[in-house]
Simulated assay, not measured.
Amino acid sequence: MKIKAQVPPRPASDDSTEPTSGPSSTTVAELKALQTFRDYGTEGVPHLLHHKCEPQGPDGPFPGGYISYTIMTKMPGRDLMASRFWSLSDEEKETRRDAFLKVFKNIWRVGIAPYDCALRNVLWDDETKRCSIVDFEHYSEAPDPINMNETQELQRWGLKHRPPPSHWAVEWGLIKEPNAR
C-alpha cells in the first residue's frame, strides 16, 4: 500500500485557496501504469488492486489537500542497491541482468518506459531467481522494444558500467578530458 498526502496550495503562491482537483501527476501516472500492467497481465511488476483518493478533512495530515491510497501487489525480493549488486560475482550479476531485461522488455511492450532508473527500483528474489521492477511514478511512452539498446538500458539503470572514454576521442576533440576546463 502506498499512501500519499497532498498539501493544499498556499494562498500566497496561488490565486485559489481550493486544493487541486485530484491526486498529483505522479500518482496519476503510477495508477495508469499499474492498471496497464494488470490489464495486460505483465509479469515482474506490481498490479493495481484498488485506489482511493479523497479530500482530507480537518483531521487529515494536511487539511484541504488530498489523500491517496494505492493498493498494489507486493513484489518479492530485495532491491539490488541493498543487495550490494556490484559486490556479487560476475555470474550472479549476469543472471540478474538477463532477468531484468526480460521484465524490462515486457514493460516496454505495453508502452511504458520508466525513467526513474535506479538499483533501488530493481528487486531480486533469491528463492525464485526472478527480477521485479517497481516505482512507476515517472515514465514516458516506450519506443519499440525490439530495437531497444540493451547495453544502454543496463547502463542507465546502473546494472552495467559505462566504458571509460578512449584517449583517441579526447585527442581528436570528440570529448573533453574529464579534468579539463
Rank of each mutant, 00 (worst) to 15 (best):
L101F: 03
G41K: 12
D125M: 03
E94R: 13
G65S: 11
S87L: 14
K74I: 11
Y69E: 06
P46N: 07
P114A: 06
S68A: 14
E127F: 04
L80P: 04
S132T: 07
T70F: 08
W108I: 02
R97L: 10
R97D: 09
K105T: 12
V110Q: 10
P58Q: 13
Y66E: 05
N121T: 07
W86K: 12
S89N: 08
K102V: 13
A118I: 01
R130T: 15
F100V: 03
K93G: 02
D116G: 08
W124I: 04
P114S: 06
Y115H: 14
L48M: 10
K105N: 05
E127A: 12
E43M: 10
G44I: 08
I112S: 08
F62S: 14
C131F: 00
I107S: 00
T128H: 08
K129S: 13
R78A: 11
G57E: 09
T42Q: 06
R97C: 10
N121H: 13
E54N: 09
P76L: 11
T128F: 04
Y115E: 09
F85K: 07
P55F: 00
G64E: 02
L123M: 14
L101G: 01
R109I: 00
L123T: 01
E91K: 11
G41Q: 13
A99Y: 03
F104L: 07
C117N: 09
R84E: 15
G111F: 07
P46Y: 03
E127Y: 04
G57Q: 04
R96S: 05
M75I: 06
A82C: 05
V103I: 13
R97W: 09
E92L: 07
K74D: 14
Y69I: 06
G64L: 02
M81F: 01
M75L: 10
E91T: 11
A118F: 00
A113G: 06
E91I: 09
R109E: 08
E54A: 12
S89D: 13
R130P: 00
D59A: 11
G57C: 02
S68W: 02
F104I: 07
E54V: 11
T73S: 15
D59Y: 06
W108H: 14
V45K: 08
S89Q: 10
S83F: 01
D126T: 01
K74T: 13
K93F: 03
E92V: 03
W108R: 14
R96C: 05
D59L: 12
A99E: 04
